[in-house]
Write a protein that binds this DNA or RNA. Structure first.
Length: 430
DNA sequence: TCTGGGGTCCTAGGACCC
DNA sequence: TCTGGGGTCCTAGGACCC
């Protein structure tokens, strides 16, 4: 088939795989990893899936199955996952070239394979898979096809039938594509969520093949305009979702957290917001950007419904900065008044968050920096602070507004050590 | 009695993703 | 008692302009 082939490489049960790497006794044993505050299950090993542990399901609802079957449970350890993710991506970069790789998420990358001979794609993919596993210890699945959507579909089938496929599936001929789409429910297509899947089933469209035969004009009317048209084309092997430039930076940066326990006081919320602002500002500086707008939001449990119903209600406030900034203290100075606007005494708060947007590259504010020696010094201070916080413990250096007690901090009772990113927690060979 | 048309920019909100 | 966090893209509709 003509046109460039694209691959998606996806780490299998990534967070669980990371935990197992440092706890080999857990290989072939059921393992789950929990979200922040140990709230939800966000990664399951194949064994845990077989036991019926649900994805994104609240931990406490699965506690019975977990205890009965001695499932190993971990709080999420993002330092560890981030570091192993980097190793996987670096390996792929080495194998296919940095300009052929688009990191899509912490555990997935698209590869542009259009320069490779089509007849060899299967073997090349198998080699890629084996090399990544050998170099990093993380198992991956690979799907290859003429469009991103079809490669995601191939990847899903490869992962579902690891024995039969060897963890790799290449879709090239019309027959191969048809067979794969017939086996895939619309719910499982990349880009079809709950709302669209429901609509499609009502219309009698149940699998990917049926959907691929619908006219574009129908999709434009019924599936979100150009989004739907793109979906149909991608299903037909016409690439419409381009590979992204690896150098692109984020357009928005958020730091948000559920509180470990309900919070009532303004002081605690101010501390949380100041801390989240610091985190967000670090991310901002890491991509050499400044923010033009800052938003703060808080979430309460709402007033409607039964007493224990989970009914989150959020309220936002934002402000446009006089000039784009990446300075933690300046961002905090704008965030705190927003917090005060949002606060109502006596209300129980579950969560707060900070969102930085209208991001611009740092060099666009250089004129501003150079015109003002004071600000330039501040920027150097920020860099020093980031370096210290990164190489030492988190938050050795921080602003007093972030508070010294942090009793709103999240629960992480079952976190593994940060084996690869903290000197005092390095893995020891037994 | 009559009540244009088109362009641009911005924001809120929906839908989806991992 | 207990339900994550961080993103993207698109559309509709309002405000404003000529």
């Amino acid at each position: 088939m003509a046109g460039g082939m694209k691959a998606i490489v996806d780490c299998n049960n990534f967070y669980c795989a990371c935990e197992r790497l440092f706890e080999p006794s857990l290989v072939n044993q059921p393992v789950v990893v929990l979200s922040n505050n140990d709230g939800c299950i966000i990664s399951r090993s194949d064994e845990a899936k077989k036991l019926g542990v649900g994805m994104a399901a609240p931990y406490y609802q699965n506690r019975d199955i977990i205890e009965k079957n001695k499932v190993a449970v971990f709080s999420s350890n993002y330092n560890l996952y981030g570091d192993l993710s980097m190793r996987v991506m670096d390996t792929l970069r080495k194998l296919v070239g940095a300009d052929k790789l688009e990191v899509y998420s912490v555990d997935e990358s698209f590869l542009d394979l259009s320069h490779l001979p089509p007849a060899e794609l299967s073997q090349i993919s198998l080699d890629l898979k084996h090399t990544v596993e050998q170099w990093t210890g993380i198992a991956v699945s690979i799907g290859v096809a003429p469009s991103k959507l079809l490669s995601k579909t191939a990847n899903r089938l490869a992962k579902k039938d690891k024995q039969g496929t060897g963890g790799v599936m290449v879709l090239q001929t019309a027959d191969e594509i048809r067979e794969a789409l017939e086996k895939t429910r619309v719910d499982d297509l990349w880009g079809v969520g709950r709302q669209f899947a429901f609509k499609l089933h009502q219309m009698g469209i149940d699998n990917g093949w049926q959907l691929s035969k619908m006219p574009e004009e129908w999709a434009r009317k019924n599936m979100g305009g150009v989004v739907g048209v793109r979906l149909i084309r991608e299903l037909n092997g016409i690439p419409c979702i381009p590979m992204k430039d690896p150098l692109e930076v984020k357009k928005m940066i958020a730091t948000t957290r559920m509180f470990g326990k309900p919070v009532f006081s303004l002081d605690e919320i101010r501390e949380a917001v100041a801390t989240y602002t610091s985190r967000a500002a670090e991310k901002l500086r890491r991509q050499s950007c400044a923010a033009g707008m800052i938003q703060v939001f808080v979430v309460t449990n709402g007033n409607r419904g039964a007493a224990y119903e989970y009914n989150p209600q959020s309220r936002y406030q934002y402000c446009i900065l006089p000039h784009a900034s990446s300075d933690t203290s300046e961002l905090i100075r704008h965030a705190l008044p927003l917090t005060e606007l949002l606060y109502q005494p006596g209300v129980k708060y579950l969560k707060a968050g900070v969102i930085l947007s209208q991001l611009v590259p740092d060099h666009s504010i250089q004129a501003n920096l150079f015109s003002n020696g004071q600000e330039n010094r501040r920027r150097i201070l920020m860099e020093a602070m980031d370096n210290i916080n990164f190489s030492q413990r988190d938050d050795i250096v921080k602003y007093v507004a972030s508070g010294l007690t942090r009793n709103w901090k999240m629960r992480q009772e079952m976190r593994s050590k940060r084996f690869t990113t903290r000197w005092d927690e390095l893995y020891e060979v037994p």
